[in-house]
């Protein structure tokens, strides 16, 4: 099963290596990892999506928690949370096709951020399902490039841990 881990870490050089290295050394699988500074500049937040049965994930959490640079780790899989990915797609778009592509972009509430002579570049944010759906819809036109961030997540409601 896929688990989503929200990890607060010291915002220091080498911390990402420690976290990624631990996954590699113990043979755990990272499906996606997104990291960035939080409102406290000394703290970064990592959102890690990892696959494995409950015992494996429990080991992942326990081992990560032992890293001195890991301040807090939560498995939020079972909690209600908001998650987003950002995806950029460059689609082949001759003039005759543009109308149809723009309709699809509208349906997904995505945005066109660049127009080339024969291409459109589209920005889409959403959860993993939405990203997958827009990719599928645009595929027939010819996807030339695709880049996406890992998932970032935040628990709904009050600050997690305060309730």
């Amino acid at each position: 099963m896929r688990h989503t881990l929200s990890v607060l870490v010291e915002n220091q050089p080498g911390v990402l290596t420690r976290v990624a290295g631990l996954f590699a050394r113990r043979g755990y699988n990272i499906e996606s990892l997104a990291v960035g500074q939080t409102h406290d500049p000394s703290v970064s937040c990592m959102t890690i999506v990892a696959g494995g049965d409950d015992l494996v994930i429990e080991q992942v959490v326990n081992q990560l928690d032992k890293l001195i640079d890991v301040i807090e780790i939560r498995d939020i899989t079972q909690v209600k949370y908001v998650d987003r990915e950002l995806m950029l797609l460059k689609v082949k778009a001759e003039a005759s096709m543009r109308g149809e592509i723009m309709q699809i972009v509208d349906i997904f509430r995505a945005r066109i951020v660049d127009i080339g002579q024969e291409t459109l570049t589209i920005e889409c944010t959403g959860d993993a399902g939405k990203a997958q759906a827009i990719e599928k819809s645009l595929k027939p036109f010819g996807i030339l490039e695709l880049a996406r961030t890992g998932k970032i997540a935040m628990v709904r409601g009050p600050k997690y841990g305060d309730v």
Binding site: G14, T17, R18, G21, L22, R25, I68
Partner: peptide, 14 residues
Amino acid sequence: ITGITLPIVKHSYL
């Protein structure tokens, strides 16, 4: 050496 010893230390500092 901090990189080399990463998996075999409790913690390390450069």
